[in-house]
Design a protein around this nucleic acid. Structure first.
Length: 672
DNA sequence: CGGTCTATAATTTTT
DNA sequence: TTATAGACCG
């Protein structure tokens, strides 16, 4: 098996071998963190800890999956399977599916993702607000989230008169009647469940003897509390993280969780991993020099044995277009001359829109690339529709999903009817599903509307009974049902092009076949049905498009999304005041987090790092002047070479001229 | 009901 | 510039 303690460096060994009591592993960028975590799990098992008593929590499904795969290569497959590796949210779902009834919810609760959440908030705003009042649903959403994470839940925010307060209260009420919980609720309710129910708490404490948390710098208050509640008096809690890579403060992550770990778990063993296996010295020293300027941090300094390496380049560009041309051109050139793969290159930026010009230029040179992030598989309408159908089958009180599909495909239930049903359900305080079967309500409708609703109810009833039949082949039922409902025709009808329609149909079929696979795989040893599938889907917002992963090419990615990844050659673009640090961060006083973001960006690079900035940049259509980021003055001059202006001007040029200029540029570069 | 047009706003986004 | 949401019209 692939686990040997002496393959690890002394600090890593100490981290792996400390198995009793609290442990804080400060794992700098590129210091072999995942290796340490998986090795530690293997070590625990080797020491006689039962695999199913080990809980490893990550933030993303991807990280959980990666860890599981690494572990599978280290220890017995059967043991590896027993270890619980889960995201915080999936763990909470597990707790709540078991005992949420203690909190007055039904166990078949529905999970609302951000889209569902927005839909509900929009609905509430229009209902609650007076004519002259306006509230941006996005603002409302983030406010609600913030309030919830501060522990307010049933109470209203400060100003009771405000529209915001009304929306907040109403939102909470409605979620509960919908028997739905949002992502924040998953944490809040799980914490509440454990806090208020000693027997449930003890059950889970007994289940897990050893807990590990990855990316601890990104945990929020609630997540910390959850960990505290899950840990028994032995406090076998090992957290791994790097305060310098805390870049999700704006999402509620609380760096003090890691900075003040000792107050939450007194007397921990603290292990610092400072040996970096990723980057060359110039890159690492640049990173060190930058991050040193942050006030609140645990002192550490990354070391590398890769002493030689090219200096970091800081290059000034005339404008964003020249920047894109330069980068695309250089990647094109270097791939050939240095015998690199396209996959070895990454372009990092602060905001998504910055990728556009780069994309254009890469396309022009026929350089393959992939843009990470962007629109998720799950934001696609057909996927949301299908999941909504499934959701209603499992929880008919889920109004948001019901409204989504009640007339999709069109079946004669118009806006007026829907409006009336919504109102009646609000008045009666029950779900829309119940209302549309209510005789009193139905009697107030036209004959046509009544029969349309009747047909809908009957269809849903039928699907439900087939689906919930014991031993039902649920994926098959789902597939047939989607067919019989006429969903594919609906897709064809609503798409402009055949390709688009085909793409959407494929998405739906893929989703169903994914369900089939899971159903058949897990059916034998445990219950895996529509409920579990839906939970998985709701908690897996991030695209699990394997195709995308496999597709090669230059990576275009935000610095946020790049955390945890590494590339031989990195281009960090738009290094300008107002972009990085972002102008908004000054207002919000989060310059330190911007600096950490830069640190994350720099430390993605293994061998080559190029940072570019522009004199001028097109913003919202018109050019505006830019200045070099103030962070640049923190760079160590002995490791960073500054190059100024590339001689390319911005005037519109013909294809031939462009080519000529490009060649000149390449020549100039070669001369450097 | 559904498509088109216009007004508006514009970091980052693990679940 | 562009994406998107809501208004408005056929």
């Amino acid at each position: 098996m692939g686990f040997r303690l002496f393959d690890l460096n002394p600090e890593q060994q100490e981290a792996v071998r400390t198995i009793d009591g609290p442990l804080l592993i400060l794992a700098g960028a590129g210091t072999g963190k995942t290796r340490v975590i998986t090795s530690r799990v293997a070590y625990l098992i080797a020491q006689g800890v039962s695999p199913e008593a080990i809980l490893a929590v990550t933030f993303t499904n991807k990280a959980a999956k990666e860890m599981r795969e690494r572990l599978a290569g280290m220890i017995e497959k059967s043991d590896a399977k027993q270890v619980v590796m889960s995201t915080f949210h999936a763990l909470c779902v597990r707790l709540l599916r078991g005992d949420i009834d203690r909190l007055g919810y039904k166990r078949n609760f529905t999970i609302y993702d951000e889209g569902d959440q927005m839909g509900l908030i929009r609905k509430i705003i229009t209902k609650v607000s007076a004519r002259d009042e306006k509230l941006d649903p996005h603002v409302a959403k983030s406010m609600i989230s913030r309030l919830k994470n501060q522990g307010l839940r049933e109470r209203s925010p400060g100003d009771d008169q405000s529209l915001m307060a009304a929306v907040y209260l109403r939102y909470q009420e409605e979620l509960k009647t919908l028997n739905a919980v949002d992502f924040d609720d998953l944490l809040i309710l799980a914490v509440q469940l454990l806090r208020e129910n000693g027997d449930v708490r003890e059950k889970w404490q007994a289940r897990f003897s050893h807990i590990m948390i990855d990316e601890f710098q990104d945990t929020n208050r609630l997540q910390l509390e959850l960990v505290t509640l899950l840990a028994d008096e032995r406090r076998n809690v090992a957290v791994v993280g790097d305060d310098d890579q805390s870049i999700y403060g704006w999402r509620g992550a609380d760096v003090t969780n890691i900075l003040e770990f000792e107050t939450h778990f007194p007397g921990p063993v603290v292990v610092k991993l400072e040996e970096n296996y990723r980057s060359t010295r110039p890159i690492l020293e640049t990173a060190n020099a930058v991050i040193r300027n942050n006030a609140m941090r645990r002192a550490k300094r990354l070391r590398t044995s890769r002493d030689q390496g090219d200096p970091v380049r800081l290059i000034q560009m005339l404008d964003d277009r020249a920047e894109a041309e330069f980068i695309a051109g250089e990647i094109h050139l270097r791939q050939a001359t240095e015998h690199l793969h396209w996959e070895d290159f990454a372009v990092l930026f602060r905001t998504n829109q910055q990728s556009r010009l780069i994309e254009q230029q890469l396309r022009q040179l026929k350089v393959p690339y992939r843009v990470v992030g962007g629109k998720s598989f799950f934001d696609r309408r057909e996927i949301k529709d299908l999941l909504a159908y499934a959701s209603v089958l499992l929880n008919t009180d889920d109004d948001v999903s019901l409204l989504r599909i009640i007339n999709t495909p069109p079946r004669g239930i118009g806006e007026g009817t829907i409006e009336a049903a919504t109102e009646a359900s609000a008045k009666a305080g029950c779900s829309i599903w119940k209302i549309i079967q209510d005789h009193e309500f139905l009697s107030g409708l036209s004959q046509r509307a009544r029969s349309a609703l009747g047909a809908f109810v009957e269809m849903m009833d039928q699907a439900e009974s087939r689906m919930l039949e014991p031993l039902a082949d649920q994926p098959k039922v789902l597939a047939e049902w989607v067919e019989s409902v006429g969903y594919y025709e609906e897709i064809k009808r609503s798409c402009k092009t055949v390709e688009e329609a085909q793409g959407r149909e494929t998405n739906v079929r893929e989703l169903i076949s994914g369900f089939t696979q899971e159903f058949e795989k897990k059916d034998r040893k445990g219950a895996y049905g529509l409920r579990e599938f839906l939970d998985d889907m709701m908690l897996r917002q991030e695209a699990d498009d394997e195709e995308d992963e496999d597709r090669g090419g230059v990576t275009l990615i935000t610095m946020h999304a790049a955390k945890g990844l590494e590339y031989p050659s990195v281009y960090l673009i738009g290094f300008e005041e107002g972009v990085l640090p972002h102008s908004r961060s000054k207002l919000e006083g989060t310059i330190d987090e911007e600096r950490r973001l830069l640190y994350v960006g720099i430390t993605r690079a293994m061998r080559s790092l190029t940072i570019t900035w522009c004199d001028s940049r097109i913003k919202y259509g018109s050019a505006s002047p830019c200045t070099l980021s103030s962070f640049a003055k923190e760079f160590p001059s002995e490791h960073v070479v500054e190059t100024s202006k590339m001689a390319i001007d911005n005037a519109p040029v013909s294809k031939e001229e462009q080519k000529g200029r490009f060649d000149a540029l390449i020549a100039a570069l070669n001369a450097m």
